[in-house]
Amino acid sequence: MFEPVFLAQQVLNGLSFGALLFLLASGLTLVFGLMKIVNMAHGAFYLLGGYIGVVIAGLTGNLLLAVITAVIVVAATAFIVEVVLLRFVRGQELPEVLLTIGVSFVIADLCLAVFGGDPQNLPTTATIPGALMIGDLVYPWYRIFVIGVAVAIGLGLAFVQTRTRIGAVVRAGVDDREIISAMGVNIAWVFTGMFVVGAGLAALGGTIGSGMQSILPGVQNEVLLYALVVIIIGGLGSVTGAAVGSVLIGLIDAFAKAWIPELAYFTIFLPMALVLVLRPTGLFGRTA
C-alpha cells in the first residue's frame, strides 16, 4: 500500500486524471468568469467531442485528426447554441442555466441515438503505444501524453490571458463587462468566443480522455460533477484555480480509489465542503 512503485503509479494516475479535469474545468471556469453562468452543457460538449473523436480515430487511426474534427464540430455546435439560444437570455441567470441543462439533454440524447449506448474508447491504433518503464514502475506513455497536453494548454491559456490584447479584453470583461462594453468592445462576441473556446477545450478533453476512460451515456454528468468540484475548490473564474483544483482532485481521487474505494466520492466532496466553509470564494477566487 505504501510501496514506492504503488505510490508513484497513483501519483501519475492522479496527475493524468487531473490533466483531463483541467481541460474540462478550465473551459468551464473561463465561461463562468466572463459570462457569470455555469454552463451545464459543458459535460455534453465533452461527451459529443469524445464520440466524434472515437469515430474519426476509428476511421483514420489519426489522433490529431480526431482531435481537430471533434474540436471544430463541438465549437461550431457551441457557437450555434450561444448565438441562437443563449444570447436571448443574456443576463438572466436562471434561464441561462436551465437552457444549458436543456441543451445538455438534447446533445446527450442525440449522441445516444447516433452512437448507441455501448462504452466506446479510442482505438489503440490512435493512441500512443508503449509504456514508461523505470525499474518496477510501468506507466502508459499515453497517460503521460495527456498530462503534457494539459500542461501545454494551461501554458497557452496563461500566455493568451496575460500577454495578448484579447486576453486583456477578457480580463477586463471579467472585472467589469458593462464598462468594457461602454469603451467600444462588442462584449457579446467576446462572450461567444469564450463559450466556443470553452466548448472546444471540453471536446479536446473528451477525445483524448476517451483513450483513458470510456465514453458512454451518463459520462457527461459525471465529468461535469468533477469539473464543478474543481472550479469550486479553485475559485470560480480562475484558470490557476482550475489547474490547482484539478491536480488536487485528481490526486485525491486516485489515492481514494486505491485505498478506500467505498468512500471515493466522499473524499472529493469533503475538500469541496471544507473550502466552501473556510474560503467560500475558492482557493484562487476573488470576492465580488
Binding site: 477586463a172 472585472d175 464598462i179
Partner: peptide
C-alpha cells in the same frame, strides 16, 4: 461618446498600461 463612470470602475486586475491599451 466616452464615459468616465461614477466610482471610476477601472479594470482592477489589469495594469495601468493594460487599462489604456485594451481600449479599441
Amino acid at each position: 461618446i466616452a464615459i468616465v463612470p461614477q466610482g471610476r470602475r477601472v479594470f482592477g486586475s489589469l495594469t495601468t498600461l493594460e487599462n489604456l491599451s485594451v481600449i479599441p
